[in-house]
Amino acid sequence: MRFLLDPIGLATLAALTDAATAARESGLDGIYLTESAALPSPLIAAAALAGRVEDVLVAAEITLGDRHPLEVAEEAAVTDLALDGRLILVARPATDDLSRFAEALDIVRLACAPRPFRFEGNHWQVPANLPENEWLPEEQVRLMPGPPLPRLELWTAGAAARPLAIERGLGHLIGADDDPGAGLAQLTKASELAPRARREQLTDPLALVERLREGREWGQDWAVVSAPASAAPDLGSIVRPRVQMHKLSPGLEAFWDTERPWAQ
């Protein structure tokens, strides 16, 4: 199980830096930035954090399917370069038109591979080959620069996007109240190892442990925990150690509960 801290409501660079640092210091994998009125561009925030906090993954959840997906892919590639490969791009359908989202998702995937591509869809054609653009007509385009690692880490979010994620072997984030069984239980070969994440709340650390153990039953291997930076130590010392293994040595949890070694 891996952990991303979503410091919901934080929008200043100082506060986001503190949250990412707290996540790292508690051994969490990274932070998760969700688009909101206070944080209109999580990718910009991710790029701004790149040089301020080392090591942690930075997930940016954006909407996809409204503006041109090539533009989104370019922004993700540059942000991932600044992050030296630490970006997780999480795409949520911008509208109810799932066919637009599916095409956008495929354009982002194609664009992030190190080869020229051509895409002919119902919503986008890349390159468009408009007759008015007379100079140097192209059959294919190449996103330059590409992301730094062999692949961009691309997830989807939102129940509607789930079948698309499974089909394509992409990571997928479900909501705290979504039924994980529908779809995720019938994983194809292509996606059996793709990240499966769920949004979690942190009220009581041991209650979250129980929930994550239950999550493991349907394959959950990432937890996106909405919590303030001050919750990072509990996540790191109480929750994370208890959900990594299939089972722990008898007596270990009782030892932790009694001695609370992290508090000594």
């Binding site: 660079l13 830096t17 990718l43 910009i44 925030a45 790029a47 701004a48 954090l49 790149a50 040089g51 301020r52 370019e74 922004e75 590639a77 540059v78 942000t79 600044a82 190449r142 996103l143 330059m144 620069p145």
Partner: peptide, 18 residues
């Protein structure tokens, strides 16, 4: 081919943080 920056605002965001 040279990878000229296609997302200058994101590159500047990185610099803003530094």
């Amino acid at each position: 081919y040279d990878g000229w920056c296609p997302a200058p605002l994101h590159a500047l965001a990185y610099v803003a943080g530094l």
